[in-house]
Structure formats: structure tokens, C-alpha cells
Design a protein around this nucleic acid. Structure first.
Length: 423
RNA sequence: GGUGAGGUGGGUGAGAGGCUUAAACCAACAGUUUGCUAAACUGUCGUACCCGAUAGGGUACCGGGGGUUCGAAUCCCCCCCUCACCGCCA
């Protein structure tokens, strides 16, 4: 949620930024300004009325103690009229506040200055590429066939016990999953991220805090009996650790990493692009979350991007980094970098990580603040990224490193897997 | 699942219709004193919003929502959460 004060102070700048998302920002922002002005007028009048009512109440008590019943009686009548007016104004205030809030909830984050305008993924900027797709096997098998051949992933068994999109990893495939998770966590903790194990279900307030609710309600699994959502990413529970928290300026930044399974309904996604490991209802991911001082968040974003890039290089995967255009960014993000690895068999790039700076957009909803040098409470900035999501990394590892007999694993994984190849 | 006890500022915790502007203590911060640290003393010390150029003034908030009353942290109703014990259980 955008900060109302910012809209008041920098109306034009915010409108221009939102236009990069192809929004009719003028109309939206003007509605906000208008509702805000209305709200303040009501509040001022209400406060005056209440002030009067309070002072009458005190006078009545005083008069009654002094035994001046008649005078007290007159004041009590006056109070009745005020009470009615207060009731009306309170209703109006609540209504206006609700309108304003609903309006603000529909407005996505304002893209940062570096973000280019654009309509779709075609307008994203490629900011870096590592490796060369042309050097990878030209006749590669798709990963689902390799996985079947080596008997390391059983999609049908998953369908039997649960449904499509819930694969079963077997033997060296299962061990590879565990190795990747451990390697990613170790890599992250070495860089100063504190490892945490959050719950895999969250309550409604948490879903709201990071912005999944109300926008993406249909994308999450919901357990009605206990009113809990299965997490779509560790971002949700971990960032919500900080809901309603006021940190000391000196303890920023907080850097956390967590492994969790992620659950996504992915309603309406079918076809060739979702075969195999490309899109699942349950998958494993190691996430990094950073709580930052507002003046440091973009430096930290760069640091996170370099961190993830280093991880991909260590795995020997050909990748590229995109800075998303305004039209392709998520609702809450001010700037997002996507990482894509090359899939040799599918001849396309697969997204394995998305690293974003949300600036104060989430912090405003979460009421996550820090106390600055002047003793003022200011909103933090929040950031997060995948480091990394497993399935597409596995897909690329299988396809790019298969020699017809076995899949050769990158050296960094050997000590984690206990073997150097899958055969 | 059963029974009971509770939710008050950063923490502990008093307050039981108007003398509350929420006591007191602890923590924190600033100052005085001081070789340094500590101690002592003095002062500051919740959040949000509104009015105001500033100084300052006002309103709301005692888990949440309703109600009674001229007036509610305090009385009534509903809900939520936490803790303890019992039962079950990895």
C-alpha cells in the first residue's frame, strides 16, 4: 500500500511512475486526494464535537458534586444533541476511511526511476547474461524424459496420491533435492543471512501483510476449518515476523533465509509450458528476506542480485538477468530483477529467481518501522528473492548436463549429494 | 477435546463509574557529578490522526466489536487470543 503522505507530497511524481505500469494513474490518484481531503474535514469537525462533549461531561460531574442539579440538567440536554451529531460524523468518518483504504489497496506500488515503461515480458531489459546457450547440447532430452529414464522423479505416483503438480522424487532425485536445499542454505548463511524455519501455514492477517490478500486469494490453498492458508512462498511467514514491529535503526538490516515447500493452486495453467517441473502445485524453495533502512535498500538489492548470480555461476548454469518493465512487475514491487536459466532441451529461458525491492509498500501494510536518530518511527524497506527455487534449477541441471547415460553434477554439490553423477 | 486463569505503555504491574493528564517500579535516552566505568541526582520518555508557519492545541486508543450512562480501562453482551492443568499424541 502506498503511503498516503507520499501521495499528498509527491502527487505528480507518483502519477508519472504509475503510468509505467499502463495505469490511468491521474484518475486514481485524484480520487485518493479527494477522499483524503473529505476525511480530514470530517475528522476536524468530529474532534471539535467530541471536545465539547467531554467538557460538558466534566462540568456535569462538577455541578452534581456541588448539588446544583438544575444547571446540570440543562447541560445534559445539550449533550444529547451533540451525541447525535457525533454519531453521524463517526459513521461518515468510518465510511470515508473505508473508501480511501479500498482505493489505496487497488493501487500497485510506484515503479522506481530505473524501471522502464512497458506492457509485457517483451519489454523487460536484459541487464546481464552469463554463459552461452549455444554451447549446450543441441539434441538434449527434456528433463521429464531424463527423469523417467533415470527413475528419479515419478509424476504419475504423485498424481495417484495427490494430483498433478505434486511430483514424487526418488533415490538420487530425492537426494539431489536435499543436497540443493542444504547447499543453498549454507551459501546464504555464509553471506550473513540468518537461517529460520517458519510455519508452512499462515493466518489471514499474514496473507494481508505481504499483499497476497486480497489480490491473490484464489492462488493459495486454504484450510477452511482452521482458517489457514498454505504458504505460496516463505516470504509470507518470514516477512510477517516483522508485522507491528519497531526496530532500532542500528540493528538494520535484518537478513534472513528460509527453506520451505511452496504451495500454489496455479488455477488455469495447462499445456506444454507446464510439463514436468516447469510449473508445480508444490515445490521447494530457499528464500532470502531483507529488512532495510530506506536509504540502503537499493544497495542491498544490488547485493542480493550479485548473491544470487554467484550461486547460479557456482552451479555452472547459463543464465540471464532481466530488469522487469513496469507492466510485468508484481503488484507490490518497486523494482524487480528476474533470473532465468537456459533449458537446453526446451530451448527457452526458465525463471528460477525473482529479487525485488518493495520499498515501503509492504512495510506500510505490516506497520514495520524503525526508530531513527530523532526518535521518530519511520517505515522500513522490505526486499526478498529466491535463492533459489528448486524445480527449474533441477530441470536445467538435468537437461544441460546429460550425456545420454548420466547427469553430471556440478562440483559444489558433490559433498552434499555423496555422488558426482546420476545414472 | 475438558477445566480454570488472564489480556493495561518497551517490560513488570496498580487502577473496580467523575480527583487518571493511566500510579509506581524497571528498562531506555539526555544532563549534572566524575581519571574511566559504575553509582547517585535531575529531567525526558506510548501510538495514530486533526488544526497550526512555529510555539502549541485537540481527538482517539487499556485484546477486538457492540451496548448502558451526561460521563466507561472500570458495568453488560458477543468474539478473538494467551497461559496453566487434565486427556490424547510425534
Amino acid at each position: 500500500m502506498l503511503v498516503l503522505q507520499d501521495i499528498r507530497d509527491h502527487k505528480e511524481r507518483i502519477i508519472e511512475a504509475l503510468k509505467k505500469r499502463n495505469l490511468d494513474a491521474d484518475a486514481l490518484i485524484n480520487q485518493v486526494i479527494e477522499a483524503d481531503a473529505r476525511r480530514r474535514a470530517i475528522q476536524t469537525e468530529l474532534d471539535q464535537n467530541r471536545n465539547e462533549a467531554n467538557s460538558i461531561g466534566k462540568q456535569v460531574g462538577q455541578l452534581q458534586r456541588e448539588g446544583r442539579k438544575d444547571e446540570a440538567q440543562i447541560l445534559m440536554q445539550k449533550s444529547a444533541a451533540l451525541k447525535e451529531s457525533i454519531k453521524q460524523l463517526t459513521d461518515q468518518l468510518r465510511e470515508t476511511e473505508e473508501q480511501l483504504r479500498e482505493l489505496l489497496l487497488t493501487i500497485p506500488n510506484a515503479p522506481a526511476a530505473l524501471v522502464k515503461p512497458g506492457k509485457s515480458a517483451d519489454d523487460n531489459e536484459i541487464v546481464a547474461t552469463w554463459g552461452d546457450p549455444a554451447t549446450l547440447p543441441d539434441d538434449a532430452l527434456p528433463h521429464w524424459e531424463i527423469a523417467k529414464k533415470l527413475d528419479i522423479i515419478d509424476f504419475e505416483l504423485g498424481v495417484k496420491v495427490t494430483g498433478s503438480g505434486f511430483p514424487v522424487y526418488k533415490g538420487k532425485g530425492a537426494r539431489l533435492q536435499r543436497a540443493l536445499i542444504n547447499y543453498f542454505l549454507d551459501y546464504n548463511t555464509r553471506a550473513g543471512y540468518q537461517e529460520v524455519q517458519p510455519p508452512h501455514f499462515v493466518n489471514e492477517a499474514s496473507g494481508f501483510g505481504t499483499g497476497q490478500l486480497p489480490d491473490k486469494e484464489g492462488q493459495m490453498y486454504y484450510i477452511e476449518k482452521d482458517q489457514l492458508y498454505a504458504i505460496p512462498t516463505a516470504e509470507v511467514p518470514v516477512t510477517n515476523f516483522y508485522r507491528d514491529v519497531i526496530l532500532m535503526e542500528g540493528e538494520l538490516p535484518h537478513k534472513l533465509t528460509a527453506y520451505t515447500p511452496c504451495f500454489r493452486r496455479e488455477a488455469g495453467s495447462y499445456g506444454a509450458h507446464v510439463r514436468g517441473l516447469n510449473r508445480l502445485h508444490q515445490f521447494d524453495k530457499v528464500e532470502i528476506v531483507v529488512i532495510s533502512h530506506p536509504e540502503r535498500s537499493y544497495a542491498l538489492l544490488d547485493e542480493m542480485v550479485e548473491h544470487v548470480a554467484g550461486l547460479l555461476r557456482s552451479l555452472g548454469l547459463t543464465y540471464r538477468i532481466l530488469r522487469l518493465c513496469g507492466g510485468d512487475m508484481g503488484f507490490a514491487s518497486a523494482m524487480t530483477y528476474d533470473f532465468e536459466v537456459w533449458s537446453a532441451a526446451q530451448k527457452r529461458w526458465l525463471e528460477v529467481s525473482s529479487v525485488s525491492n518493495f520499498e515501503s509498500f509492504q512495510a506500510n501494510r505490516l506497520q514495520l518501522r524503525f526508530k531513527d536518530g530523532d526518535g521518530r518511527n519511520r517505515l522500513c524497506h522490505t526486499l526478498n528473492g529466491s535463492s533459489l527455487a528448486l524445480p527449474r534449477v533441477v530441470a536445467a541441471l538435468l537437461e544441460n548436463n546429460f550425456d545420454g547415460q548420466r547427469v553430471h553434477l556440478p562440483e559444489v554439490l558433490h559433498s552434499y549429494t555423496g555422488f558426482t553423477a546420476i545414472d
